[in-house]
Amino acid sequence: MRPALGLSVQALTVRFGDYTAVDGLSFDLPPGGTLGIVGESGSGKSTVLRAVCGLARRQAGSVALTGEDSPAAPGTAAFRRQVQMVFQDPYGSLHPRQTVDRMLAEPLALHRIGADGPDRERRIERVLDDVGLGPGYRFRYPHQLSGGQRQRVAIARALILEPRLLLLDEPTSALDASVQAEVLNLLDALRQERGLAFLMVSHDLAVVTHLCENIAVMKGGRVEERLLASDLAEGRAEADYTRMLMRAAKGFARRDTVA
């Protein structure tokens, strides 16, 4: 197995006009580790992922890979190959007029991977197999796939470059509960097989703690609290905001049973 990669983000700031979405955020993801960012809409959690992979511009701060001697710098092709992202909505993130085959071939062509045709063929077949889609899905269009199958294609598209850090932006929130379980199991298995590092964003505490060991709770562009998933599970949260999220995750509680 290749050496695992980690990520170090220091004093990251992202502004959109006058609005500061991410405000001096720092965190370290150890090589091969898992970090889950939890927060509500507008907390800046997705923007962190976008800033890491270069989809949002950093106004200040640094993003660096860790874990090997000369890690690829952000903005280089090598960085983009090692860091891949899976987006929230598989209904929006796949090209509606491209077949699965074409969507998987494109990253290979862009990064000039696989010298000849047969090699690319093999890679596409293998990655489809890895995400649990048979060869029968290879020449389908997105509209011929279910939500769970589409998200598998999105994961395959990220995996085909053999990345070492996956950025997961709410990868299961658009899926039904039973399909969510399948995708979570797939991600879990892939991580164990390949020693991938995960940086995951979600509003669902249970989903995040299922995949990630370290948790950062974000609010208003800053980290409100950092804790281990096991702490969260046992209710050892300090910040009021984290406690509120935990209560909310338990469902609706009727306060006035008397009235």
């Binding site: 969510q180 379980a181 979570l184 199991n185 505490l205 969260l232």
Partner: peptide, 13 residues
């Protein structure tokens, strides 16, 4: 099939 806070079931049913 829902993951739970503090749940240890892997893989999820």
């Amino acid at each position: 099939c829902l993951p739970e806070l503090g749940g240890t079931r892997r893989p999820l049913p």
